[in-house]
Computed example of a mutant assay.
Amino acid sequence: MENSPRPTDLQLHTLSRVLELHYDDGAHFRLPCEYLRVYSPSAEVRGHTPDQAKLQIGKEQVNITNLEPVGNYAVKIFFDDGHKSGLFDWGYLYKLGRGWQPLWQDYLQRLRDAGRSRSGEDPFNQLQARGEAPSERPV
């Protein structure tokens, strides 16, 4: 765990609903609040086993109201829909940043499989339209 990348800066952009993370290996991620909410590591979302996972629906406008550090290894994220369980450890946030494309596509597919859809513009498309790459990798 000591060799795992660690964040050097976290910035919450409430207007654009994005959490920006900089890691000590040079990685830089911009993660939409909706994405973080639907991939919350809480038992409420993930369940205790994969078959207990609950698909999160209607989280397009969710925002983060507070970030609370937990030791030197995680952050507790408070969402404005009342969700505040689950600790986002640095490795998990890094995984979400690196793997945003397949993870987001998987979420969209699970919505389709459930006969559901998102409303509004895709938050990752919004980032790119503003010229902000969701993920920047070190050279």
Rank of each mutant, 00 (worst) to 15 (best):
Q52M: 15
Q56D: 11
D24H: 05
K59M: 14
A114H: 07
Y39D: 03
E68F: 13
L87K: 06
K95S: 11
Y39T: 04
N66F: 15
G71F: 15
Y23F: 14
G91F: 08
F88H: 05
G91E: 08
K59W: 10
N125E: 15
P41H: 02
S85H: 09
R130E: 15
E136T: 14
G131M: 08
T14M: 08
H83W: 02
R98P: 10
S85D: 13
Q61I: 07
W100H: 06
L103S: 10
E44Q: 09
E44T: 05
S40R: 05
G86S: 05
D81T: 00
H83I: 00
L15S: 14
E136G: 15
V70L: 07
A129L: 12
R112N: 10
N3K: 12
F78A: 06
F88W: 01
G120W: 10
K95H: 11
D9S: 13
N3V: 13
Q52T: 13
F88E: 04
T8P: 06
P50D: 02
K84W: 06
I64C: 08
G47D: 07
G58Y: 03
E2K: 09
A114V: 03
A43W: 09
K84E: 14
D122M: 11
H48L: 15
A27F: 13
V139Q: 11
L19H: 00
S16L: 09
L55S: 03
W90A: 04
V139C: 09
P138M: 10
G91T: 05
L19W: 00
P41T: 01
P134F: 08
W90Q: 03
N72G: 07
S4G: 14
P134H: 00
P32E: 04
E60R: 02
R137D: 15
L111V: 06
L12M: 08
G97D: 01
K84S: 11
D25F: 06
L127G: 01
V45F: 07
S117A: 09
K59G: 04
A114W: 07
S4L: 13
R6L: 07
E44N: 04
R37W: 00
T49N: 09
R30E: 10
N63S: 14
L103M: 09
P41R: 00
D25N: 14
R98M: 15
L12Y: 10
F88Q: 00
A74C: 10
D51Q: 12
E132A: 11
L36V: 01
Y73G: 09
D51W: 14
T8C: 10
F88T: 01
D113C: 02
R110E: 03
N125M: 12
F79C: 04
E121K: 12
R112K: 13
F79M: 05
P32Q: 06
F79A: 07
G82D: 04
G58K: 03
P138N: 13
C33I: 03
L111K: 04
Q109S: 08
V45G: 12
D80W: 02
N72L: 13
K84Q: 15
R17F: 01
K54R: 14
V139Y: 10
V75P: 02
G71W: 13
R118V: 02
H83K: 02
P69K: 09
P138Y: 11
G97F: 08
V45D: 05
P7L: 07
G47E: 04
Y23V: 01
Y92E: 00
H48R: 15
E68L: 14
C33L: 01
L21P: 02
V38N: 08
D89W: 07
S4W: 12
I77P: 03
S4Y: 12
S85W: 07
T14P: 09
